[in-house]
Write a protein that binds this DNA or RNA. Sequence first.
RNA 1: GGCGCUAUCGUCUAAGGGUUAGGACAAGGCCCUCUCAAGGCUUAAAUAGGGGUUCGAAUCCCCUUAGCGCUACCA
Length: 493
Amino acid sequence: MSEVRTRFAPSPTGMLHIGGVRTALFEILMAHHHGGQALLRIEDTDRERLVPGAIRALIEDLRWVGLHFDEGPSFDEIEQADSAPPEGTGIGGPAGPYVQSLRLPKYKEVSERLIASGHAYRCDCTAERLAAERDAQTANKEPVGYSGYCRTRGVPAGVPHVVRFIIPEDRAVTLRDAVKGDVTWEKVILRDPVLLKSDNFPTYHLACVVDDHDMRISHVLRADEWLSTAPLHLLLYEALGWTAPVFAHLPPVLGTDGKKLSKRHGATFLSNFREEGYLPEAVLNFIALIGWSPGEGEEREIFSLGELKQRFTLERVNNAGGVFSYEKLKWMNGMYIRALAPDELAKRLTPFLERAGLVVDNAKLARIAPHVQERMELLPDAVPFIDFLFKESIERDMPSMLKKGMDAPTAETICTKTAEALESLPAFETPAIEAAIRATAEALGLQPGNAFLVIRIAITGKKVTPPLFESIYALGAPQAIARLRETAALLTT
RNA sequence: GGCGCUAUCGUCUAAGGGUUAGGACAAGGCCCUCUCAAGGCUUAAAUAGGGGUUCGAAUCCCCUUAGCGCUACCA
């Protein structure tokens, strides 16, 4: 295979969708597996739906999730194309500009060429006329589409017009798709689609063909929904005398109801996942496994980006759509959280703790991090487990403390004796704390578990916490002892 | 309606003519255990239906059914 070049070509009409993330991932996996380049190209040809700031958000999202393109819009290009100011650096590259609104002359030139060669024509039909045609066709139960009225009218360049492509009659077109196999259309039913709009911007069809050719794209990986328009693209390559790239239409990412993933299924934008405390590594790993699998008896599911690049091939891309399972993503996120070095986890936890209104003490966080690690699926899961460390005063779940045969006087004694035991500790460290507490429980003739529950609630306020002795160690002697004495006082009143 | 795509446990998927149809998530059970987890072991769970081809079909072909996509001067 000669040089492999792929492109991710989102339109800046909003936030980056999780399905888009998978396409972007596959573009990179494909290119890098073969030692080629993956480019980022902005398809901002729809002026109506353009969202200011979307290009910048897109690039930030891609960066956060760890997807880095080899070529893409430069800082200057972004500045020209997006009214919101760009931040950070652009990407750049030799095949730019990588923003379609900056490439208008190219599309114009190609459409003129197509008119000259008899493959396209100018059309000045009004929206009303087109609507009337469509209505008539629907009424007669005919397939809808432009009639070709202007094909032979010779509309001059001077009047407002669009440029339409002439779909040859009775032409069978076969696409050799890298994932779908051979797909044949006996008759292309698209009828003279618009190539160049009246505002001089190209439609997707013209722009992507021109740019993919211009940027020497070897493999076009794109969503399934483009399959129906693929014959048009093939015909365009043919009319232009260009060699078409290899096409690979990717299966859709679905919601639990089998419909395209949307807001009502849960998080869909990449930024949602970020806010909800998913790790970018986990998101990438998980989304890679929808529509692709390593196969060949491989039963691992956890792969780094590098490992994915090593293994990815188009042959292993599935053709059926896959449901996006938040449950499994959460599990995988938990796996990634557990694999984090504790100080790295502490770092990633900090913004979520602060967002919960806590003032983070880094020393305490470092001490507890290894012990919450295996109790979490999402980053914010840590908050209720460890917020007791960062609060001046805590609310205690007294009803849970005094259940199952535990009475207030006994609980009070446990708290007092434990406080005393902790006070007399020469070194306030986990093993010593454990020994002291176990000894206290034994001296009182209590089941350790029962005593632990009292102490747990006395110190953390809750019945579900990280391991008790580690929690006490993380809190520190003065606060731990104070909380025990507070609880004892509470129990005597 | 037309054109096209798709079809293995509830979900993601493996098995590219011969397997007790494998793994993972979720669910159930057991073990471990200071709570909650994590971890280990384990149970249940699938080839949409019907025809072919073949000694033999989840796998190849056809039909049916169901789902999805497209059918714009949106991408």
